[in-house]
Each structure stands twice: as structure tokens, then as C-alpha cells.
């Protein structure tokens, strides 16, 4: 890059990458058959709930290709900046790339424009990345349906600034008020989330961190029971689901010690460990 081709600056990282000839889309040759027997890594159950202090985001750790489990330590809950997290389901290769572009875009906007990208700006950026990936999604090999969770610091102190956005394959975003879930295991727990949110003893939004963690571990356990592409807790290898929280003070990852403790509390009394 030289001074002569410094681009016009709107803080747009995607134009910068295009300018540097970075291929943002993979162009498949025309006539490429549907993926058929190509086994692409897929995954997942991710679940996001709004709890008392903000938002809690969780994902299991299994990645599968066809009927094979190819990896049991996959990270599907990715921190994007100090107050936002992307939870991914679908093709991990594309999802990681989207997460990385998103992270760099937010940083580039801040560094070049000397202010943080607005909440709306962040949502649109993700929309654009998902829409640009449509061709791959239609081929059946690179679809990504993420949930984007963030904490809006402009919310008054006494209110919960946690926000959850759900995207479709075309990049439209919808705000989910109390919870969202996606991935192959999500169908098994969506109804449970609705039930808990509406009829539970403690509504999701009133739960403290520990209660929310226990609830989420139980939900993932339920999903893994019925969905082969979702892993539960692997006691032998000590592999826990990833759980992150976003509060006014930023993103935190729950430690294995916290999870061990909550996992014990999440079991039915008859199976207490």
C-alpha cells in the first residue's frame, strides 16, 4: 500500500480488504454440483439468554462432518470486542472468517474514525457479511446462522443493556428479547426456553449468574440427548461447554472451576455428584 492509493476513508474495512485484493468470497466455478458427498464440518447448539446482569452466551464444543465427530473442543462462542460476542452455528470455516472480519472491522473503524462503531453500524456490518456469503449458503456448504449478543452501554444504569440479535441466511436481523438459540440441537430446547421464560419459577431475566449458568447447562444437556451433533459435558476429558457473559463491565468467560461447580448443581438430586 502506498500513499497514492490510500482509499477514501469511511472506516470501511471491507473496502480496504478488497483494495488489498483479499478475496472476500469464494467463487465456485459454475456448474459446481451441490456438495453431495463432500463432508463439511458442521455443528452445534448455541443458546443465549438475557439474565439479571446482561447476556449469557453458551455453546457446546462438538464439530461434526456427516455422522463423524471430528473435533470435541470447538469454540463456537467468539468474543468480537469488549462488549460483543458472536455465537455461531453452521460451517465453522466461514463462521470463523466472519468473526475475524467483524473483529477487525470494529477495530479499524475505531482506529480510523476515532470513535466506536455504533450499535446499528455493528449490526449492519454483520448483515452485510452474511448476505455476501449467500452463494455459499445456497450451495449447501457454507451457511452460517449466528446469534450476535452485545451490551449497549448507552442504556441507563438501572436497566439491563443486554441485547440479542438473530440473523437469517440473507442477513436480516431481528432482536430477540429474552433468549435465542440456533444450531441443529436448538429445536429441542426452544420450547423449553419459551416455557422457562414465561412460566418458570424465576423468569430468565431475573436469574443471577449462577442460576442462569445452571439453566443453560441443563438446556445443553437436553439438546445433546436428542441431537447427535451436540456434545454434553465430557467428564473424562473435562470438556465443558463454553459460557461467556456480557455485562456493563465487558465480556467474561466462565472458568472451568465455576462450571464444575455449576455442573454438579445442575444434576437432578437423585444423581447428585
Amino acid at each position: 500500500m502506498s500513499i497514492k492509493n490510500v482509499i477514501n476513508h469511511k472506516g470501511d474495512f471491507l473496502s480496504l480488504l478488497q483494495h488489498a485484493n483479499y478475496p472476500l468470497q469464494i467463487d465456485l466455478p459454475s456448474g459446481t454440483p451441490d456438495h453431495g458427498d463432500v463432508e463439511i464440518a458442521h455443528s452445534t447448539t448455541v443458546v443465549v439468554v438475557r439474565y439479571r446482569d446482561g447476556v449469557m452466551i453458551a455453546g457446546d464444543r462438538r464439530a461434526t462432518a456427516g455422522t463423524s465427530v471430528i473435533y470435541d473442543r470447538a469454540e463456537k462462542v467468539l468474543q468480537i470486542d469488549k462488549h460483543s460476542v458472536l455465537a455461531i452455528s453452521g460451517s465453522p470455516a466461514i463462521a470463523y472468517e466472519i468473526a475475524r472480519i467483524l473483529e477487525h472491522s470494529f477495530q479499524y473503524f475505531r482506529r480510523s474514525q476515532l470513535q466506536e462503531l455504533s450499535l446499528e453500524g455493528k449490526l449492519r456490518m454483520l448483515s452485510r457479511l452474511i448476505r455476501d456469503n449467500l452463494a455459499m449458503a445456497l450451495q449447501g456448504i457454507g451457511g452460517v446462522i449466528p446469534i450476535f449478543a452485545l451490551y449497549d452501554r448507552d442504556t441507563p444504569e438501572e436497566e439491563n443493556g443486554g441485547k440479542i440479535y438473530f440473523y437469517d441466511a440473507l442477513g436480516a436481523h431481528f432482536e430477540n428479547v429474552n433468549f435465542a438459540t440456533t444450531g441443529s440441537g436448538s429445536i429441542w430446547i426452544r420450547g423449553v426456553l419459551r416455557y422457562l421464560s414465561r412460566f418458570g419459577d424465576t423468569p430468565l431475566e431475573a436469574m443471577d449468574e449462577r442460576q442462569a449458568t445452571i439453566t443453560i447447562l441443563r438446556l445443553l444437556d437436553t439438546a445433546s440427548e436428542y441431537d447427535a451433533a451436540t456434545s454434553g459435558y465430557n467428564a473424562r476429558a473435562q470438556i465443558f461447554p463454553t459460557i461467556k457473559t456480557i455485562t456493563r463491565s465487558g465480556v467474561e468467560t466462565l472458568s472451568d472451576e465455576d462450571l464444575t461447580d455449576c455442573y454438579a448443581a445442575a444434576q437432578p438430586e437423585s444423581e447428585a455428584v
Partner: peptide, 17 residues
């Protein structure tokens, strides 16, 4: 401003690629 953008752009692209 111009030179700041030059170095920021270069660093951002390198850091991403």
C-alpha cells in the same frame, strides 16, 4: 491525517492477512 491513515491501513491489512 493522510499519513496516519496510510500507516493505519497498512497495519490493519497486514494484521488481518
Amino acid at each position: 491525517e493522510r499519513l496516519r491513515m496510510l500507516v493505519t491501513d497498512t497495519a490493519s491489512v497486514q494484521g488481518f492477512q
